[in-house]
Design a protein around this nucleic acid. Structure first.
Lengths: 250, 250
DNA sequence: GACCTTCAATTGTCAGACAATTGAATTCCT
DNA sequence: AGGAATTCAATTGTCTGACAATTGAAGGTC
């Protein structure tokens, strides 16, 4: 099974693409073992380091895992939701940081996406989801909670909310979006902290989901989005005109 | 700047992670050049092939690009929306194919997500978006259109719809989701072809967006989702009880 | 000054070797 | 015969050194 390559350039990339396509096409079943590096080198007519570079490319995409030893080798990975979510978060984080996405745009997309799961969450939420949401709200109300912990709890709350929709694909998308936005959210929460207001809005959301009232849930989500945007606007204004320190009326 | 590694294993992975974190943290600006492979090898105290494996990992994630020649080297990539969407599609495709996600779940998430952009699309759509949608609908109505072209047009229509929301982050998420679902959608369209019904639903969507009526747009989207699910159910039923060939009643 | 040549830096590739790991086969003891 | 310890072989991880290909830049020529 000598496989030909396009004569001139970047063998490792071509090999990686070839194997990747084979995996995506299902020719290589999950948990199946690839030939050894030496065999692959012989098949493609290249040296082992070149094959290794190709395999590292695939490993970077979580398409394969490697194991040493007699029965070791490269095995096709079964991509789970957790790993896929890591990918999503990494990509989204890079995207946001490298494209000068402004806060309003990021915020808007995040809440628009999360809003998408509200009907499902209201219809399918189970006691465990409600319990998690309530627990996180309670946690957010405790005094002396650090900003980091508050943000983590915030993420956990929204995670429970999207999980209540009981659609893993949707949860993957939404949780990834929420997690990728957290750095931006931190910037807000750390500066203009008004936790009680956020706790109130979270409670309204939880109430609506508990009552299976999608309309009310949507309204609560809109209110949360509006408040977050408002905070973002305050931050920007404060930066543009930095500190009339005494802060009189005006 | 000798950088230490955790003594025992998989240097290339550690090096890749180190550089990746530096990029994500912004220590390496976009389009900035990394040290040469030899320099990196010296800095990390490993050989050049090991450094190369690390760089290939980063290249596989589109974090860097490499260029040969005197002024060549590895450069930090500015991750654009297009490349990021490729990532998203690849990950989503793998996720769907490797986790036995059933059609209903995938379909539900896809339409829930797309529904999220309808208010924005109705509020902000511009003539160009409407024109694209109309053009694709017209294309979908032409006789003799191949199934592949019909599907491509379908994707283009939905792409225009989400772009009408004029939020690039949202477009990235939604277009990625739509494109990842296309293989599944093909399965449907190729079998139970009912293009006129789909064209009607697309027209209803376009009308609602043109009229900036978010409620009607949501209803049209729900109808489209319902019809798609219905088709999926038919396919499944037909598979479970394969071909009472003459197709008489009951 | 414009064009050509040479050059040096850098990535891409190769060959062979050795170390580390690990499951399986083998041997040895009971 | 059965189980435990040992040996073994296959495989990945890494190193060394080298050469080829590419490409912008420096220098030389007209």
């Amino acid at each position: 099974m000598k496989t030909e390559l396009d004569g001139d350039r970047d063998f490792s990339q071509q090999i990686a693409r070839t194997i990747r396509d084979a995996i995506l096409a299902g020719h290589l079943p999950a948990d199946g073992r690839l030939p050894s590096e030496s065999d692959l080198a012989a098949q493609f007519g290249v040296s082992r380091p070149t094959v290794r570079e190709a395999l590292k490319r695939l490993a970077a995409q979580n398409l394969i895992r490697t194991q040493r030893g007699a029965t070791g080798g490269a095995f096709v990975n079964r991509l789970g939701f957790d790993e896929a979510q890591e990918h999503l978060v990494t990509t989204a984080t890079l995207l946001l940081s490298m494209n000068r996405v402004d806060f309003e745009t990021a915020c808007e997309s995040r809440f628009a996406l999360e809003r998408a799961c509200l009907p499902l969450a209201c219809a399918r939420r189970e006691p465990q989801h409600l319990a998690t949401m309530r627990a996180e709200i309670a946690r957010q109300g405790t005094a002396g909670l650090s900003d980091e912990d508050f943000c983590a709890s915030d993420v956990a709350f929204h995670r429970a909310l999207v999980d209540a929709g009981r659609n893993p694909v949707l949860s993957w998308h939404l949780a990834g979006a929420v997690e990728a936005m957290q750095p931006l959210m931190n910037m807000i929460t750390f500066t203009a902290r008004s936790r009680s207001r956020i706790v109130d809005l979270h409670n309204a959301l939880a109430d609506a989901v508990a009552a299976q009232d999608a309309g009310a849930a949507g309204a609560a989500m809109d209110a949360l989005a509006g408040y977050t945007l408002e905070l973002g606007g305050q931050i920007r204004a404060r930066r543009a005109q930095p500190a009339p320190d005494g802060a009189t009326a005006g």
